[in-house]
Design a protein around this nucleic acid. Sequence first.
DNA 1: TTAAATTTCCAGTAAATACTGGAAATTGAA
DNA 2: TTCAATTTCCAGTATTTACTGGAAATTTAA
Lengths: 187, 187
Amino acid sequence: MNLTPLAERFVLHFGEMGSRWGVNRTVGQIYALLYISGKPLCADEIGETLAFSRSNVGIGIKELQAWRLVKLVHLPGDRRDFFEPPKDVWDIFRVLMEERRRREIEPTLSMLREALLERPDSEADQIAQDRMREMHGLIELTTGWLDEVQRLSPETVIRLMQLGAKVQKVLEFADKLKFGGRDGGEA
Amino acid sequence: MNLTPLAERFVLHFGEMGSRWGVNRTVGQIYALLYISGKPLCADEIGETLAFSRSNVGIGIKELQAWRLVKLVHLPGDRRDFFEPPKDVWDIFRVLMEERRRREIEPTLSMLREALLERPDSEADQIAQDRMREMHGLIELTTGWLDEVQRLSPETVIRLMQLGAKVQKVLEFADKLKFGGRDGGEA
DNA sequence: TTAAATTTCCAGTAAATACTGGAAATTGAA
DNA sequence: TTCAATTTCCAGTATTTACTGGAAATTTAA
């Protein structure tokens, strides 16, 4: 399979960006190719198009599967493995957020929880623990919020985003109408 | 300067996590150390505490400055450069979001904008461009929302987060009261 | 059960990144 | 202006990560 100049630019860009997103060039390019192809591709097709060795494609796909960004599909009458990304771009977004959270946030949250259980036995530890408590509070708040948002339908989330800063006005109304914080009471 | 076991765990953890956040071990550890120290540190102190060469500390600090995660300060009667992170953890959060957006999102947005201006001259390009349009729409929506949210006070953002999924109820009210989308009209 | 197609694994190699120590440049007090 | 303190730069080395080709294992149609 041969790439059009348009497709090639897209693929090369994702290869470059890969490193900023925690994956290597190969993985970035493979994902980009699958994303714009509009149909499932098999490992050989990918390797041929991007000029990667068969093994390299295999490793890349395995990584994308670990990210839940591509899934394995089978075409009737063909025993090869084919791969495709989630159809809906919102699904991709959600998965990406979940995975990044799992990899980048959760380990730190665990560490902080443990560290905050200990009794500080010096002034330095006292200060350090205070700082950790601040960080912990922020992470709890934002991940808790993310949990809640994920329970909303994509349509609601879209509406919310379109509302933008006007949400402040809505909030002021909420105050009057006694919509409180997450405990349901007033602030 | 010597680390307590508590502080050491924190520092080592951030060293490990660094790679997942797009910085190396050195940078992660330096930042962690500055974060929990509660006072500005100079390069020598950092290098001595973490057992890094003086140059390595210099490079690491430069990178943290590029991220706007530490700032240079001077202590009276001392000509050495001292460094400290923003005091407020919400500032750190905001800067982190801004920088990640600038590095991870903006380049892709530019590329998509350009690619979408072109006239597709094959069915494959047509499909590819459709996919790019989807991605572009999602990014525009979310970054536009982020822009708006940044205009709110931290207190408002905190309240919003604490509201969580209950925001849906508020939105339903907003509907009745004719709070519309970002254009101010009704949906 | 066999054999061809396909995937996974692995050892070796290539490339990129991180790190060091020292030399050069810069800074600021005297 | 001088000189000591401090920072920045740079070349070389070490470490880590990426990639390849082939061999072994697995799968499935016949």
